[in-house]
Design a protein around this nucleic acid. Structure first.
Lengths: 238, 238
DNA sequence: CATTATAATTGTACCGGTATAATTAATCAA
DNA sequence: TTGATTAATTATACCGGTACAATTATAATG
């Protein structure tokens, strides 16, 4: 086991909340109890709780206690859990159809966002993703080939990020996301099975490794009928 | 000065980055230097840096250093900086027109989201917000009157959140946001000066105090032509 | 009985320490 | 020059402590 102690503790607390179906506002044991229960120091427990707070699982009130944070709505895709719908849409069946997969030169836009020259190679991946048989989104991705050295159609039809982490041993760090609402083009509408001119949500994301290198620029166009999003914010920094 | 030491340090580091126009990837002084420079312990510096990391200002690489994180695009509204566009759209001129302001009973939806009964009072506020003279969004808010005890048209035409914090002395904690793309209704289109059926982004947010009480449920409908959004995610919790 | 003052509870700020893991730089061997 | 080994740098995990601030419970007061 190479998982850190505070991560383990965070997981166990989260599992405890799940298993006992705790609701918003329910109180967790006090710090000292958690310390002895997990045989960890105060700072380790606090670190675990901070993690859970950032994940939106708990909130802490000074002088009062640690409470469960829950949101009510189901079926929303979290914009913050960085990659993949798998976690958010567990109850649903998400599949991918690979339209295109090849090594090519990046567009100007992709090159700029990946911080590479237009002469360098990228893997270009185009997929349509389905949820319960209906189109969820159209996805175009550009992977910096000098970092993501190899992809094939099998990998691409599964979870690319799992492969990047497990297969390539890379560590995904942070991402910048840009959202825009617009009308569907003819081509997009075709892939999504909608009419041109219908609303769309376009999400552009630049994914970075932990060392700050951008390795993936992707543009995802969502079917507005299928896509509901969710963001949990903490005003810890106001 | 009642600002905490680690917050002050975070502010100073952020200011330093701004003033020196540091770019993505630029390295900050090492921990020990920061410790002596700010006359603070290691853990306090780390706390300041964690804050900045969550704000998307820096990223830390173990064994290597602390680096500046920057995104390139301007004019995007950050979904995470919790309230108000003021900060994000500093360079732009944002104004509000109050359409309605009154005490009333909540809708079923509002009551459910504010966790109150339908017989309790809420302040209902309806505003249209403009950016550089163009319509940005239509906003409908429900404030729990037992928490937000008083509002008037002057407050509402300015920043309501500033008043909540400064005037009422309340502390805003966390918020849950739900996003959806759809087509504009006749009424919405009228307020925004667009055609019915045009795309819209609808954002519903439930704001909570630090103690977990929901005090504001708001539905904001954005003019798709004016609204671009931005999210900085950290995969620290994967 | 309501109000106010006081005490107990509980989380946070801040200190500072040791050991460790990731990265980068320096050294050495082929 | 290249590649591998070693060393130096640097941030992180984890420990545990004191003082303090916010909240909640209790006691005192009228």
């Amino acid at each position: 086991m190479d998982m850190l102690k505070y991560q383990q503790i965070a997981n166990e607390i989260e599992k405890y909340i799940e298993d006992n179906k705790l609701q918003q506002g329910d109180k967790l044991p006090v710090l000292e109890t958690l310390m002895s229960q997990f045989e960890a120091s105060k700072s380790t427990i606090i670190k675990a709780l901070d993690l859970l707070e950032r994940k939106g699982v708990v909130f802490q009130v000074r002088g009062s206690g640690i409470f469960v944070r829950r949101h009510k709505r189901k079926g929303y895709i979290s914009l913050l859990s960085n990659q993949g719908f798998k976690e958010n849409l567990e109850d649903f069946h998400v599949t991918s159809e690979v339209i295109e997969l090849e090594v090519r030169k990046p567009t100007e836009e992709a090159a700029a966002n990946l911080n590479i020259g237009r002469d360098e190679d990228v893997y270009y991946v185009k997929r349509v993703r389905y949820i319960n048989g209906q189109t969820l989104c159209l996805e175009e991705s550009f992977y910096n080939k000098s970092i993501i050295t190899y992809l094939n159609s099998e990998i691409v039809s599964e979870s690319i990020f799992d492969y990047i982490k497990e297969g390539l041993g890379l560590k995904v760090g942070f991402s910048d996301m840009y959202l825009q609402v617009d009308k569907l083009s003819e081509e997009e509408a075709g892939y999504l099975g909608l009419k041109a001119g219908s609303p769309k949500l376009c999400v552009e994301t630049i994914f970075h490794l932990t060392n700050g290198q951008p390795f993936d620029f992707s543009k995802v166009t969502y079917n507005y009928e299928q896509s509901q999003f969710f963001v949990q914010a903490n005003s810890s920094f106001l």
